[in-house]
Design a protein around this nucleic acid. Structure first.
Lengths: 231, 231
DNA sequence: CGACGATTTGAATAGGATCAATGGGAGTGG
DNA sequence: CCACTCCCATTGATCCTATTCAAATCGTCG
């Protein structure tokens, strides 16, 4: 860990309010490392040795079984991943790879668990983080079980619009990954975009232009309890 | 809360190791109530006022959107539900109803959050519980994204066999709910059972008899990282 | 007994996946 | 700079899975 990086790390939400002592302990055996794109950071089934925090870039969580693979989530700064495995001292349930060049903070599991036991501010922060992750998966699960693929895409587009504050949207990653994340094949994603054309969705490469948000929203029927990041 | 119930409650895992003081505070404003079957305990979208703990019976967590409904999980003793909403002081993401007559312990959210802040043993227990819930949903999500419906059913049957330690299995609840939980329609569940007949699966009402577990397992290809409750 | 809901089965349909072929960019090496 | 390759993306055709609709059966409960 380079001393230069410490102040920036210290500002992260998950360290807000914790003692200097705790922070030092956490950082002592940690790494802040920059990885190139497409680097596998974690493989499911392995013991959870480090808590990972995406500081910069983007990390894909994915899972495999029986020859199939699916993108489970994309993790953006500043969020941790695989916190539950750390707390339970269990194996990872998902694999992780960088989607683009990324800076990742890696904190040893033992340190995390020890500071959790000794610093109430940190345990509070961890629980909030864990709760957010939990609710994120629940929403994803609802999304998958209660909507068709075209509806999922429509709502995803609306989410991007919200996040980018623009009717001109740039897809944050490859359509292949987006398809997998939405639980469909790339071919099907392509067709789903076409299905949304009548609702004012124009696609050119990774740029999407919305010309009739109202109609799109009427079709998508977004739900706070599925789509809102903040709820 | 009747004094008779307290010793039993005290033994629950989530209260193990916490101080008398903390326990008293938690219990002071709590209820241990018996509900009949099909009683709605929680409605998604409502503020999270109470942490619920299933002490006896069985509770169904389900979600609705756009006229559709899906069973998200079944909760058995002794597990809490909706813990994340409590910790984040947010609204429920799922609804809950008793599936059979059930005893449910209801602890006020404010008490939970306060004791969490003051008693390390309790915060530890809550985090373990929360982590388990998180990993449970992740497994369910993998299950849904990486398997066909027949594979999900086959693995579910194997799980029941494991839990009941018997090749004669009793389905723990209606097939309608099982179907929804597995992400399919009742009609499709019926057909999925038929598809598994060649693998030694015989169905009579809510009784299932397995005559060739090896073949069934070969078809199901169970995975520790999806099916094992303990991992 | 009668009503109701759960379950099963059949037939038709729709939604997605797979397979195959093509176009298009980005990156590589000459 | 250009040719080449590779992979992403799109499109068409086809197949398969799962849903929907309809109807029959069964069991339970009042």
């Amino acid at each position: 860990m380079r001393p230069d990086d410490l102040p920036q790390i210290r500002e992260l939400n998950i360290f807000k309010g914790i003692s200097e002592e705790s922070f030092d302990e956490l950082m002592r055996a940690s790494f802040l490392q920059t990885f190139p794109a497409q680097m596998e950071l974690i493989e499911e089934g392995e013991p959870a040795d480090f808590l990972h925090v995406v500081v910069e870039g983007c990390v894909e969580l994915f899972a495999q079984s029986n020859g199939r693979e699916s993108t489970m989530a994309m993790v953006y700064p500043v969020s941790s991943f695989i916190l539950a495995a750390i707390m339970k001292d269990a194996v990872y349930l998902m694999s992780a790879r960088t989607n683009k060049k990324s800076r990742v903070l890696m904190i040893p599991a033992v340190s995390v668990r020890h500071v959790f036991d000794t610093d109430p501010a940190f345990s509070k922060a961890m629980v909030i983080e864990l709760s957010s992750c939990y609710r994120g998966v629940v929403k994803e699960h609802k999304n998958l079980k209660l909507r068709t693929s075209v509806e999922r895409l429509a709502n995803r587009i609306l989410r991007y619009r919200q996040k980018q504050q623009n009717d001109q949207i740039t897809l944050p990653y490859d359509k292949k990954i987006l398809a997998s994340n939405l639980g469909m094949t790339p071919e099907n994603l392509s067709r789903a975009f076409n299905t949304l054309k009548p609702y004012g969705v124009k696609v050119e490469g990774n740029k999407i232009t919305l010309s009739d948000v109202e109609q799109l929203a009427k079709f998508a029927k977004p739900s706070k309890l599925i789509d809102d990041q903040s709820v």
